[in-house]
Simulated scan of single mutants.
Amino acid sequence: MKKKTKIIIGIIIAVAVFFYLATIGVLLFTVDGGFKGLKKDKVAVISLSGSIADSGGEGLMTSAGITPDFVRAQLNRAKSDSSVKAIVLRVDSPGGSVGASQEIAQEIKETEKPIVVFMGDMAASGGYYISAPADKIVAKKGTLTGSIGVISQFMDLSGLYEKLGIKTETIKSGEHKDMFSRELTEEERELWQSVSDELYGQFIKEVAEGRNLDVEEVKKLATGELFSGTQAKKLGLVDELGGYQDAIDLAAELAGIEEPVVEEYPARTFFESVFSFTGSEIRSLIKAKFFGSDYVMLESLKESFPVPRY
């Protein structure tokens, strides 16, 4: 009996030691063939893909997107890792919220480690806004970028309300408080145009400062049009034409390191990766199930408009 007890205890100790060593190995060993304990110089890669929004308020058929909280968390992770010497942001975005774009750009400006942006298929409008403060920008020849401008869209939802049998009654204090729920007056159009022009000026200033360009020069480019990567380089909106590895090499060069270990940060949580849905997408599915797709569409439209967008 004692012999059997000793055998069991021995097995338990052996298993415990095995898992302990395995855990240490996982923590230390990297797929790049190095050990974190050796503090090898690294380039952190952060993927920013989708529309830019203030929070994870994605709809039923949209991606997780780019939020200030997500970017801040990823940059803080890179900042706190002493072995990370430079950062590559893989930006693929058509733009989005003005405020969120500005907050993300500020986070990038406040990061002391060298940052290189690698543009994907599109880094336009807000996608370009958050790229401008980077130390260097690398784009593919066929990347679509630029689109420097501001847009607000006002939608007449009266037909949809009628279809859903919804009647609205408005009680307001303030002449223009309901201006987004009906057709604008000429005065309100002028008021909103002044807001748009102000945000447009902020965009131009950000690009001029980030790219070391003259404000008047940027104004000539700020027509809202898209440029190819090749055109953007000629205009001074990007620094280099190339691919992902070129961006890594440039980041390493800025940091003064050779043969860096590349560490790609995951863009989604484990739950989101497995089930391919974000929390808000799941909420939208539940709402669609109980209230119908028309309700979800209306709710999405109300949230999206008329917020100014980069």
Rank of each mutant, 00 (worst) to 15 (best):
Q102N: 02
I87E: 07
I87F: 11
G95E: 10
A86W: 15
I87T: 12
S93C: 08
V117E: 03
V116C: 05
S83F: 09
V117C: 13
E112L: 12
A78D: 04
E110I: 02
G99H: 03
L89V: 12
L75N: 00
G96W: 06
A100S: 04
V117D: 00
I108L: 05
T111R: 09
S93E: 06
E103L: 10
S82A: 11
K109L: 11
G95T: 03
S82Y: 03
P94Q: 08
Q106M: 06
I108P: 01
R77N: 13
M119K: 05
Q102T: 09
G120C: 05
E112C: 03
V84W: 02
D92Y: 12
I104L: 06
S83K: 12
I104T: 01
V117A: 15
I115A: 14
F118M: 09
K79F: 07
Q106N: 12
Q102E: 13
V117T: 10
L75F: 02
Q102C: 03
Q106Y: 08
Q106I: 02
I104K: 00
D92R: 15
S82E: 15
P94V: 11
M119P: 02
R90F: 13
Q106K: 14
V84I: 15
I104R: 00
G95V: 05
P94H: 11
V84N: 08
V91S: 07
E103C: 01
G120W: 04
Q106E: 14
V117L: 03
G99E: 08
F118N: 03
V98Q: 02
L75C: 01
E103Y: 07
Q102S: 08
K79Y: 10
E103P: 00
S82L: 10
I104G: 01
L89R: 04
I104P: 00
L75V: 01
A78V: 07
L75E: 00
Q102A: 13
M119H: 06
G120V: 08
V98C: 11
K113C: 06
L89A: 10
V116D: 00
V98T: 12
D92V: 13
E103I: 09
K109E: 13
A86D: 11
S97L: 03
A105P: 06
S97N: 15
K113L: 06
K79S: 06
V84G: 10
G96C: 08
A78W: 02
E103F: 03
K79E: 10
M119Q: 14
K113S: 09
